[in-house]
Design a protein around this nucleic acid. Sequence first.
DNA 1: TCATCAATTAGACGTTCATCGAATTATCGA
DNA 2: TCGATAATTCGATGAACGTCTAATTGATGA
Lengths: 102, 102
Amino acid sequence: MTMAGAKQSVDLSERQMQLIAKALADSNRYEILKKLASRDCATPCSDMRACFNIVPATLSHHMKELETAGLVRSEKAGKFVNYFAETRVLRAYLDRLKSDLG
Amino acid sequence: MTMAGAKQSVDLSERQMQLIAKALADSNRYEILKKLASRDCATPCSDMRACFNIVPATLSHHMKELETAGLVRSEKAGKFVNYFAETRVLRAYLDRLKSDLG
DNA sequence: TCATCAATTAGACGTTCATCGAATTATCGA
DNA sequence: TCGATAATTCGATGAACGTCTAATTGATGA
């Protein structure tokens, strides 16, 4: 039992560690995640299509990669989709890198 | 001017950020780096060939990738090559991720 | 209901990548 | 000097990836 009120810490599998590293290795995805993390509110899909010079299909592909890696969560809002950065997963990734490679 | 005696902090270019992420995305390279980081002493090339089920050419390729990313430094010792983990670069990478995406 | 718009999926294309065997370079000991 | 050993480089191959266009799904408002 950990401290009451503390957010559950995330445990990452080897597979997820690879997925995260791969997700961060593409500059478009990195910028997308950076933007998502900078606002801590919902960010609609179309907002990002305006920022990054990519076609909808490509953006969709990248968002899926980020979601599969666990770095991003999505919520449907009618016709639209909102995205959120999963900061806990990123933190877990950083902690793991530090403990494995520090 | 920073504190006297403090190691110079490393500034990473966008390009190097990508190279590091990509270097960490391969499981063989990750394990190699992990091994290198666990010993803080020199590790000969042949030591690693014994641990990972890789042919010399492939190991050479991975070490080059890690060196290009800046995560590893090498020193020739006669017929052999010794490798060292560049912990300062890794630390800089973690700091940068935290400040960009935290 | 139907036309419109948001987003995803499917399929294709060119590039990058991990891996290997073979050839090459470099160093050491006999 | 010469054979043996360590490591790198070269060239090839098959898989994975980023990107695009076109087709599809899903939801909204007229």
